[in-house]
Amino acid sequence: MSGERILVVEDERHMAEVIADNLELEGWKVDVVGDGAEALELIRADPPSLVLLDVMLPGMDGFEVCENLRREGNQVPILFLTARSSGDDRVRGLELGGDDFLPKPFDLRELILRVHAILRRRQWFGSPAPGGDVLRLGDAVVDFKSYTARLGKREIELSQKETMILRCLSERPGEVVSRADIVDRVWGYNAFPTLRTVDNFIVRLRRLFEEDPQNPRYIQTVRGTGYRLSP
């Protein structure tokens, strides 16, 4: 997985240096900035493969950086690092579109494993889908590349997670995909969502693509196990 570029946004000098050295040892190229606004500019100009984003930063905090990026449609993967590990912060990080959340002080090996996991997901999602980058659900056409779906004349935007879930299901059409498999593929092992989170995403996807969401035709529930896509 070398060739990936990681941006470390951290204002604690020692912390930033040691994280950067460790990531470089894994073969990744690493840039370091200590300021939220500067990080935002850098990511806009040239999005890295992953951003390790501290929450408490001078100028603009990590949450604001993430919020701005997502509002602009920038889906660069973000791993939040923070010494404030309250449940509220965790939930806020998730709501703003963060990919993972690691409270300080953390285990070095865990950090590296999580970075690997996020990059692996990114690689999976960035590679061409086996059945093509387009999924047809009746009249609707989903484009995995642009995170959009065309419903007749209407084009709607999907979130990255919604698109990832559809792609995950579409790779095994007609097969049962467990909720745990979806969480693993879309969020990663140690990520914060519960299996229930998957159900919430499915409810929204059905509202978009099913004529009768109560009796779904395309995204079916397999009781006690998971979901099956029948395009």
Partner: peptide
């Protein structure tokens, strides 16, 4: 919340340095 952050930051940084040394990743 403030105390937690203030105390955790240097702990996290020192721990990372020591862990890197112990794992021979320096």
């Amino acid at each position: 919340s403030g105390v937690t952050h203030e105390l955790r930051s240097p702990i996290a940084s020192a721990k990372l340095c020591v862990e890197s040394l112990l794992l021979g990743r320096v």
